[in-house]
Amino acid sequence: MSNKWRAKVIGQILLVSVLIAVFLGLTLLLKNKHFLLFSFMLLLCSILPAYWRFEREPLKTQTLMFLAILIALAVAGRVPFASLPSVQAASFVIILGGISLGPELGFVTGSTTALVSNMFLGQGPWTPWQMFAWGLMGLTAGLIGRTQLSHRLMPMIIFGGVWGFVYGWIMDLWFALAYVNPLTMKSFILAFTASAGFDLVHCLSNVVLIALLYRSWEKLIDRLNRKYNFLPTKTH
């Protein structure tokens, strides 16, 4: 990975993170009114890395189609399991998307999945935070995809398991800031502890899906890419 490429990625992450933090802060200050407006603003922020990617290397039509298919699969992997709290098949698809498409489009995959799936499950003040959490999941998976760790099953299982908790902690942070009053260290810890069981289920569902399906999906995508050349070129 060149220093120039690394500097660009870090710059993108910092800028998008700052913009997202501003929008998330505004949703809290406005008492969760206009959350749908801020969700679309957040989606625009998440698309910025894709424009950077397009400027550096034009995205092929096949790549955009594959991105749309991944988002559709992630939505399909979330909506049917809505009755099973924290069983998130969507997370597996988002991680796979980041590994395949890179950090920029991985972020787009995660954030768009949250917004589109909530059109079926219900929008709310939680939507921007889910977009942020799943976007970061896809982005970090894209960074892992630049290394040899993405070809080793155990590191990917650990990565998916850790993100089962990190996703929950981001959502716990939103809940604590928005609804816990008064917000003390004790109440803050209790808010996080109360969701530990759900975070564990998310962790285990990621671990099981990656352990069972990651290798076969990796081979399938590699075989299809050799035939149709739809994956963007990875810059090291």
Rank of each mutant, 00 (worst) to 15 (best):
V201R: 12
F165Y: 15
S39G: 07
T147Q: 04
H34I: 05
I47Y: 15
G164Q: 08
L136I: 11
V108C: 06
G98P: 03
S91T: 12
I95F: 03
G11Y: 14
R152C: 00
A133N: 06
M65K: 11
S111G: 11
A50G: 12
S17K: 01
F198P: 06
L29H: 09
K234W: 05
I95L: 07
T147I: 02
N206T: 04
M41D: 01
K8C: 04
W129Y: 13
R215I: 04
T147M: 04
G25M: 10
P80I: 10
V93G: 05
P155R: 00
G102E: 08
I144K: 01
S2I: 01
M154H: 00
L26M: 13
L43V: 00
A178T: 04
R6N: 06
S39M: 03
M171L: 15
K31R: 13
R56S: 14
G11N: 13
T113E: 05
S216C: 02
P125A: 06
P58W: 11
S2P: 03
S100M: 14
N3M: 13
V108T: 09
F230C: 06
Y228W: 12
F38N: 01
V108P: 00
Y167V: 12
F66L: 09
G110T: 09
H151T: 06
Q130L: 07
W169L: 14
M154K: 10
L44A: 15
A68M: 12
T63H: 06
V87K: 06
Q88L: 05
F120L: 07
A21W: 08
P232G: 11
T112L: 14
L183H: 05
V87E: 08
R146F: 11
M171G: 10
K33A: 13
K33M: 06
A76V: 10
R226C: 08
L213V: 02
R223W: 10
M185I: 13
S17L: 11
L64A: 05
G145I: 03
I71R: 09
S216D: 12
F175H: 08
L26F: 14
R78C: 01
L26K: 08
L183A: 10
G164V: 07
C203P: 04
L136F: 15
S17T: 14
F35K: 01
A89F: 15
P232M: 09
M65T: 12
S100D: 09
L105C: 11
G142E: 10
N32D: 11
I20Q: 08
L42Y: 00
L70N: 07
M65C: 07
P58F: 11
S86Y: 14
K31L: 06
V208C: 03
V201D: 07
K33F: 01
I157L: 05
S17C: 07
I94E: 03
A178S: 13
I10E: 07
I47C: 09
Y51H: 10
L220Q: 14
M137H: 03
W5K: 15
G145H: 04
F35N: 01
R56N: 12
L36D: 03
W169C: 08
G160L: 11
I10A: 13
L67D: 11
V16I: 14
F81L: 15
L213Q: 00
V180S: 11
I99L: 11
W169S: 07
